[in-house]
Design a protein around this nucleic acid. Structure first.
Length: 597
RNA sequence: GGGCGCUUAGCUCAGUCUGGACAGAGUACUUGGCUUCGGACCAAGCUGCCGCGGGUUCAAAUCCUGCAGCGCCCA
């Protein structure tokens, strides 16, 4: 309704402007401050004042007069408040919102028939996922979810850098060292076992006799050359290491959960010839030069050249990534990449080069986030410094479990939570809190990881929002049981929230009811905006507002014990809509919505 | 040295792209509220040179510019 109403307002304004011979390129539509009753407002009168040779309030009045609300859907009236035009919705706006909210898919936008590939995480398979990287899957997954809700056909990809020096070093180390010479793994899972070889290998290259290091470097070089030459045996050796480590990392990411439709390997674009093809086309470009023993590409806007082919004819990471991105363009309408700020220059060069190669780079967007650092500095898989994501999640779950147990005695509701429930709630709340904390902030802001802060369940956190969902479920559950015992019929098997299809909003008269329904109406607009800006934190900001509004409503308005049947039915519909909005908003954020907690 | 990003209440953050109605939340601190649908809740109070200086504008946290601090990147 929100989006349809915005359309109406835009059309109304445009028509009124045109009728008065004003330009229609700037409508100045905005959402007014909270204490103004309107859903939309326009500040256009400010800008027209000079041209009209009249003060803004007068222009605003003139425009308001030119609009007949009857001509536009959902528009009840246009108020003039000083220089502002305020657009107020009619009752059908609220009624339609309540009806739409009854659908479990509330907030999902119509199919756009447009495919998007979201690439995220793409961490080199060198070892356990640490917290420094954790922002990527959490933001990436939420971006993908937001696009999905906004009606795009979304594919989630993890690009696997299996052709670089890191993997050659890893493969060499894995074959070179014996397990009995390694320390115990921190955790009994593939990537924790495997990373020991990688660390040992790197330490060896730094500390061993120069002669031995030289020998090792020759073996590493041989692996790289083997990959470049398309040698099958080399692929298999490297592939074993890559797949094993990646297998463990997948398990870790699945705990968030962050799942992928496809793991796209870099070597794929070496083997299918597309990297060679890219190289050939790059050489033909005007900006291509051979300098300092390498083929490079110069740019107009970027100072730094892009080296795309070494003297020994080996390709570089970015060269292969160019082939990768052209493959994306061939298979998807749009491509979104979530990457750390350290890759920003690379990404700019990549975009420029794709453009020079004749691609339409408007189809490509990047979401860039700042790294999570420890108070004492950077995290590193190679050096073994940092906090592992697994440890953070375990700790979060442990603390959440303590909370659940502490609160057990205070619970008003006697729904007898058993051991399995406690464990479920601990997991939902613990992991939810970690994700919410990360996804609710602008990605460009730096985060310094601190245990206490990351695991704060108070504050504007996931549990606060999750609690609203559980409350809604509790009320709807009560309502269903009451209706079953009253009717004496067979228990209905369908959803509790389908109980009361009647949505007569005219009985919802208190401020808290109106505020809540207003917030509910905005939800599809929030989804739209979060998806088009690729900013899932907008959804997190919204969940807080919605939760606030719901709690205020809950306090003011008894639902099950409402004065009359109509009010009860309408309030139940409000609860059902709230439940759907909260559940779906949390779903976008990748946070579970518990039915009880 | 050059490029990019960040800087808003004691603390953690929205708001900045697209300038517009008195700059908002939470937390902390001070109060008050459970025989009533779930108190992980609600209500009231307190909290600001929006990093600093200049500019554009009827209007600047928001745009431009110089500077500082922090982060990232570049040989």
């Amino acid at each position: 309704m929100f989006l349809a109403f915005r359309e109406s307002v835009a059309t109304a304004l445009e028509t009124a402007l045109a009728a008065n011979d004003y330009p229609t390129d700037d409508l100045g539509i905005e959402e007014p401050p909270e204490d103004v009753e309107a859903v939309f407002a326009s500040s256009v009168a400010f800008r027209l004042a000079e041209r009209a040779e009249a003060p803004p309030p007068k222009v605003a009045a003139e425009l308001a007069d030119a609009i007949d609300p009857d001509d536009y859907d959902y528009l009840d009236r246009v108020d003039v408040q000083g220089p502002y035009l305020n657009f107020l919705p009619d009752e059908s706006y609220f009624a339609d919102t309540l009806e739409a909210g009854g659908d479990a898919a509330f907030g999902r936008l119509p199919d756009r028939d447009t495919s998007v590939v979201v690439e995220h995480t793409s961490a080199n398979p060198t070892g356990p996922v640490h917290v420094g990287r954790a922002r990527n899957p959490i933001i990436g997954d939420a971006v993908a979810n937001a696009l999905d809700y906004a009606g795009y056909d979304v594919e989630r990809h993890y690009y696997v850098n299996d052709a670089g020096r890191q993997m050659a070093v890893f493969t060499w180390a894995y074959e070179r060292f014996d397990e009995e010479d390694l320390p115990e793994p921190a955790r009994d899972r593939a990537e924790y076992r495997m990373v020991r070889y990688y660390r040992k290998g790197n330490a060896f290259l730094e500390e061993a006799d120069p002669e031995e290091v030289e020998e090792a470097e020759a073996e590493i070089e041989a692996i790289l050359q083997g990959l470049e030459a398309g040698d099958e045996e080399t692929y298999e050796r490297v592939g074993e290491v890559v797949d094993t480590v990646l297998g463990g990392m997948k398990e870790c990411l699945a705990r968030l959960p962050a799942d992928f439709d496809e793991f796209v390997k870099e070597t794929r674009f070496m083997r299918d010839g597309s990297t060679d093809d890219v190289v050939a086309r790059l050489k033909e470009l005007d900006g291509a030069v051979y300098e300092d023993d390498a083929w490079q590409l110069t740019f107009d806007d970027i100072e730094k050249n892009l080296v795309f082919l070494r003297a020994d004819d080996t390709s570089l990471y970015t060269t292969r990534d160019l082939a990768h991105h052209e493959w994306k363009f061939d298979n998807y309408d749009r491509a979104v990449t979530v990457l750390g700020e350290d890759h920003k220059l690379q990404a700019e060069q990549l975009g420029e080069t794709l453009e020079l190669l004749g691609n339409d780079t408007d189809r490509l967007s990047n979401v860039i986030y700042s790294y999570v650092n420890l108070p004492e500095g950077k995290m590193s898989t190679r050096r073994g410094t940092g906090v592992q994501l697994d440890d953070l999640l375990d700790e979060a779950i442990d603390r959440a479990r303590e909370e659940v147990e502490d609160r057990m005695d205070d619970r008003l509701r006697d729904d007898d939570l058993d051991e399995a429930d406690v464990e479920r709630i601990a997991r939902q709340v613990g992991i939810g809190a970690v994700r919410y904390d990360i996804v609710s902030k602008q990605p460009t802001k730096g985060i310094t990881f601190e245990w206490e802060r990351a695991l704060d369940f108070e504050a504007q956190s996931a549990p606060y929002v999750q609690y609203v969902h559980a409350r809604c479920c509790g009320i709807l559950d009560e309502a269903r049981r009451a209706s079953e015992s009253a009717s004496g019929d067979e228990p209905r098997a369908d959803e509790a929230d389908e109980l009361e299809p009647v949505a007569d909003t005219s009985v919802l008269t208190t401020d808290s009811e109106r505020d809540l329904i207003r917030s509910l109406a905005r939800f599809p607009g929030v989804v739209e905006s979060a998806a088009s800006d690729l900013e899932p934190h907008q959804v997190a900001t919204y969940t807080r507002e919605l939760a606030d509004r719901f709690n205020a409503f809950y306090r003011e308005c008894p639902v099950l014990t409402a004065d009359d049947a109509e009010t009860r039915a309408a309030r139940l519909a409000l609860v059902a809509a709230s439940k759907h909005a909260v559940a779906n908003a949390l779903d976008i954020l990748g946070v579970e919505a518990p039915e009880s907690m």
